[in-house]
Amino acid sequence: MEPVTTIHGRAYPFGQKNVDTDVIIPSHWLKTITREGLGRGAFETLRADPDNLFDSVEFAGSPILVAGDNFGCGSSREHAAWALLDLGIRAVIAPSFSDIFSGNAFKNGILTVVLPQAAIDRLIEVAQSQPIHIDLDSQTVTTPFQDRFAFDIDPFRKTCLLNGLDEVGLTLAQGDAIGAFEDTVRVERPFLAVGVGS
């Protein structure tokens, strides 16, 4: 996974509350075999409107999404995070997120930034014409107008994102411990170590 240090660019001034995973990616997209390409299905129902934000000349391809309360509620489909990523979104700023979505986003290197509604309102105003800057190390969101909003993040997740460590990468770093465990199993419970054979 790519390390996340700063995210800079235009932001979709989206603002909707209770955006569920069916809105982010409708269920008929789940029969796919890749994580990529789901950007085409991202916000599909909203994008049926030719004047939608996501396909507008000004905002298409923005790396940041500014949304309302309870973003990502609904099902556990990891496709929601994959769809945002494929659309080019690297960070979502909202007053709150569903737990499952924020976990899935984190597993895919998408930064979820929680800020109070007043800050969201200001960012939506700024985003109409100007870029937004997110600095993970200092945990701040800033604008060209000298706005500065501090945010909290779980220290473990921060470390993972800053260093580009996904959970798989982290566990792979425990390879010696896993190897030692396997050695013990080969001695104590050899019947479990065989599987389908080599």
Binding site: T32, I33, R35, E78, V168, L172, I178, F181, G195, G197
Partner: peptide, 30 residues
């Protein structure tokens, strides 16, 4: 530790793709 992993066609394609993109292998194909 997971002793046995069964894989079918619906929930595995993206997992394999992620391994491929990251240049990772399957630790215990056996």
């Amino acid at each position: 530790y997971i002793d046995r992993h069964l894989v079918h066609e619906v929930t595995s394609p993206q997992a394999f793709e992620a391994l491929r993109l990251a240049g990772r292998t399957v630790r215990r194909p056996d």
